[in-house]
Design a protein around this nucleic acid. Structure first.
Length: 489
DNA sequence: GGAACTCGCCAC
DNA sequence: AAACGTGGCGAGTTCC
């Protein structure tokens, strides 16, 4: 009885969830109305430039023997934009073995990753062309949607299964960022209002922290607050006895462990995919035969400038001499090599290191199977037929976004109440983009910091892990390209 | 001629 | 036993 009454007070209900979205829609619509300034002259200029570059790349491709042979095999009817036709030519006509297959139809995959493994240099022109085209599409999207030099991206709260948001017309949540060249070309089009500057505020490791609120795993919480789980996993996966955070190679391997193992595991992936991804995408190690010395990425150049040390040298010296295989026998699966190594690490990851997290996953799924639904900590209810991974991921993804949305609403209200000139103009799941009047920068920064790290955990007592917020700032009257770290307090 | 589908790729 | 979560959008293709 006692426990129940506490729960009633602190656990948000479906009405609270409704209220969050009601206020959320109103706040988001103010950002939509405000919009994001675009440099129309730049877009038109750069579009022309990219269009010509696209045509030149296309011409270069059409001059290759590869293209001539492709045309010959289809009696001249070739559309170089068609991955279906390319797949037919490579896998059916030329007899290349597909190294990857598509999900729904099981055809040989023609994505960049699959094609790059075929080692056909002429295809580089197609990769280049695809990249240019993608950039043109983003700029076109801005141009087509702008009204008097301002785009008004929409934010939807009614479309996503996890109760996250989506964005369209144009989609503001998938503007290139990681590819330096594409990032610069696209974000150079986006500006604050005159005399203002763009401030971007991000929650740090938000989804991992929210997952910890559900699973309450002490090791995970400790790692979030004081440790470095990506470094630890890099050390285990690549068998590094003394991880050196200043070593360029070690830094790369930490990245590999973070994206190829830790995040993948948190989303519900398993050792086979992780091993494959780590070996081929991150280390360029072959998946057949014994590994040779001098293969794969250079991981360590200390003291040996003319004799690079390769990842294969290191793994072989530690006894991992090949990628390995998975064989089915009457007794079960026999796993060898690097595959076995990653499988062991996976087992340790879930059965020892994050044991309580795993227990939560099993319990949470069992509860869903019993009831047919589950409730997020923010009051939203997910029901219907779901896979185990869905049941584990949705509550985290949704509640993490709700932290952002709640903060968005508070900051929006603060801006209106105080008649400020700054405006929130965008949102990308765990970040806010604010068009700031420089005179208000300090106030906005301090307010965002207080809302996200003090008020939010007070509002939702289920947030049992401290939240962290990072900010970056662009110069006055400058585009969204050059950002500097900004201390909010 | 358009709806529905697949695939690939960008973001988180 | 199963096996990476959520979107939007463009291009090609297939079906009606």
């Amino acid at each position: 009885m006692h426990n129940l009454s506490i729960k009633m007070e602190t656990t948000p209900t479906i009405k609270d969830a409704y209220s969050l979205f009601h206020k959320g829609i109103l706040a988001l619509s103010r950002a939509e109305m405000q919009g994001f300034r675009v440099d129309v002259d730049y877009i038109l200029r750069k579009r022309e430039f990219l269009q010509r570059k696209l045509e030149r790349t296309e011409i270069k491709f059409k001059e290759t023997d590869f293209y001539a042979d492709w045309c010959k095999s289809t009696k001249g009817k070739v559309n170089i934009n068609s991955s279906t036709q390319l797949g037919d030519y490579l896998y059916k006509t030329k007899g290349f073995t597909a190294l990857k297959y598509t999900k729904s139809n099981g055809n040989g995959s023609t994505d960049d990753e699959a094609l790059k493994q075929l080692n056909i240099p002429e295809l580089d022109f197609l990769f280049e062309k695809k990249k240019i085209k993608k950039t043109i599409d983003v700029l076109d999207g801005f141009y087509n949607e702008q009204v008097d030099g301002t785009i008004h991206p929409f934010y939807n709260l009614h479309l996503v299964r996890t109760f996250r948001s989506s964005s369209d017309s144009p989609n503001f949540q998938n503007i290139p960022k990681r590819d330096e060249e594409m990032m610069t070309l696209c974000r150079r089009a986006l500006f604050p209002r005159e005399g203002h500057q763009l401030l971007e505020v991000d929650f740090g490791q938000l989804e991992v922290r929210i997952s910890a609120c559900y699973n309450k795993d002490e090791t995970l919480i400790n790692d979030i607050l004081h440790g470095d789980m990506h470094r630890d996993m890099a050390a285990e996966i690549f068998m590094l006895d003394n991880f050196d955070k200043n070593n360029k190679g070690h830094k790369l391997l930490r990245q590999a462990a973070k994206n190829g193992f830790v995040f993948a595991q948190f989303y519900g992936d398993y050792y086979k995919n992780c091993a494959e991804n780590l070996a081929s995408n991150w280390c360029q190690l072959p998946k057949t035969g014994k590994w040779k010395y001098g293969q794969g990425v250079v991981i360590d150049e200390i003291g040996k400038p003319f004799k690079p040390y390769h990842i294969s040298d290191h793994l072989i010296s530690k006894g991992i001499k090949e990628y390995g295989t998975i064989t089915k026998t009457e007794r079960g699966y026999v796993v060898t090599g690097f595959l076995k190594h990653v499988q062991d690490i996976e087992n340790n990851f879930w059965n020892v290191r994050y044991k309580k997290y795993k227990q939560w996953k099993d319990d949470w799924f069992a509860e869903y199977q019993k009831k047919g639904f589950f409730d997020l900590y923010t009051g939203f209810r997910c029901s219907g037929v779901m896979k185990k991974n869905d049941v584990i991921n949705y509550p985290v993804q949704g509640a993490a976004f709700h932290c952002l949305l709640w903060s968005f609403i508070q900051l929006d209200a603060f801006i209106i109440e105080n008649n400020l000139d700054s405006r929130i103009i965008g949102q990308i799941h765990d970040s806010l983009i604010i068009d700031v009047n420089p005179k208000e920068l300090k106030l906005i920064g301090e307010t965002v910091h207080k809302i996200t790290t003090v008020d939010l955990p007070k509002h939702w007592p289920w947030i049992i892990v401290p939240l962290e917020i990072d900010a970056e700032i662009c110069g006055v009257d400058e585009s969204w390209v050059k950002k500097e770290k900004y201390d909010l307090v």
